[in-house]
């Protein structure tokens, strides 16, 4: 019984981590039709910024409990500085191009940012372990989990519910849905589509950098850490259906639980199982579980 509960808890924790990153990816795709590979760089930049700034402030005697705010601030700083630069400086000139071309451009940006990270932070690992152990822990049977995991779950839930609320219950959200449906008509109706693109891209980047910033205390922040998350996030949004928030949530839960089950009961297939599930879903629903029917333009 303990092990079944552990499977669920491990799955939920992993899903939360994945969802916070994947929801940004799916949001950017949903609004801008960009498969943003640079998302992995924002995750890594968030982790580096968080580890270096939080580490430096803790070394100068900052109250440890404030480190959570610094993690959040680090993620926001990345999104406010790098994302607008990328969107206004490069991507906005590419919107007329094919989706595949834009994806390749974001891939090139990903490679450039990977090297930029090495130039800025070097290749030595960064650590900021303090926030992970500050909040004590809870026990389930014989297993101990740091309460820090509850923050990760909370961030994922708040991000998901917040986005659903903004999209469905606010004026801004309705305008954004209009932009998603047809940018040209939206522009003709006086909606500032460029501003929506900038804000959406920056907020999507913020979600990725927040996932990186809040993961930083649990690992060693090293070059190329953005590679794995982008692959897994793609698996999640492809399972759920590109551009679907509900799809990203369900995709993250499926990936998290399937991975957790395999680790506990058949660890030898863990490497393969996520992609097997993805292939299975695509075989049955080629556009993902929650794909939305698109109106054909004449």
């Amino acid at each position: 019984m303990d092990q079944l509960i552990a499977v669920c808890i491990d799955g939920v924790i992993y899903s939360s981590w994945l969802f916070t990153s994947a929801i940004g990816l799916t949001l950017i795709y949903g609004v801008m039709k960009i498969l943003n590979i640079t998302h992995g760089s924002f995750y890594a930049l968030g982790a580096y910024m968080a580890a270096s700034v939080t580490g430096a402030l803790l070394a100068r005697g900052m109250e440890p409990m404030l480190s959570y705010l610094v993690l959040l601030g680090s993620a926001a700083a990345v999104a406010l500085i790098v994302a607008p630069l990328l969107e206004r400086g490069l991507l906005r000139f590419m919107y007329a191009k094919d989706e595949v071309v834009i994806m390749l451009i974001t891939y090139a940006c990903f490679l450039i940012l990977e090297d930029a990270i090495k130039l800025i932070w070097g290749v030595d690992p960064y650590f900021v372990a303090e926030p992970y152990g500050l909040l004590d822990s809870f026990e389930v049977g014989s297993l101990t989990y740091p309460n820090y995991n509850l923050i990760l779950i909370g961030i994922a839930v708040a991000s998901g519910l917040g986005l659903v609320y903004v999209l469905n219950k606010t004026r801004v959200g309705r305008l954004l849905l209009t932009v998603i449906h047809d940018p040209e008509i939206s522009r003709a109706m006086g909606i500032n589509v460029d501003l929506f693109y900038l804000v959406t891209f920056s907020f999507g980047a913020f979600l990725a950098s927040m996932a990186g910033a809040f993961t930083a205390p649990t690992l060693s922040v090293v070059p190329a850490m953005g590679v794995d998350i982008i692959v897994l996030s793609f698996a999640v949004v492809v399972i759920g259906g590109l551009g679907s928030l509900q799809g990203a949530a369900v995709g993250a839960v499926i990936v998290g639980l399937v991975r957790s089950i395999s680790i506990h009961f058949a660890p030898e297939i863990e490497l393969f199982v996520i992609y097997f599930v993805m292939a299975l879903v695509l075989a049955v629903r080629p556009r993902g579980l929650f794909s939305v029917a698109e109106a054909r333009k004449i």
Partner: peptide, 14 residues
């Protein structure tokens, strides 16, 4: 380079 070992650590503890 998986980086996340929460479930593996649970399995080791269990």
């Amino acid at each position: 380079f998986a980086g996340q070992y929460g479930a593996e650590i649970s399995a080791l503890l269990a």
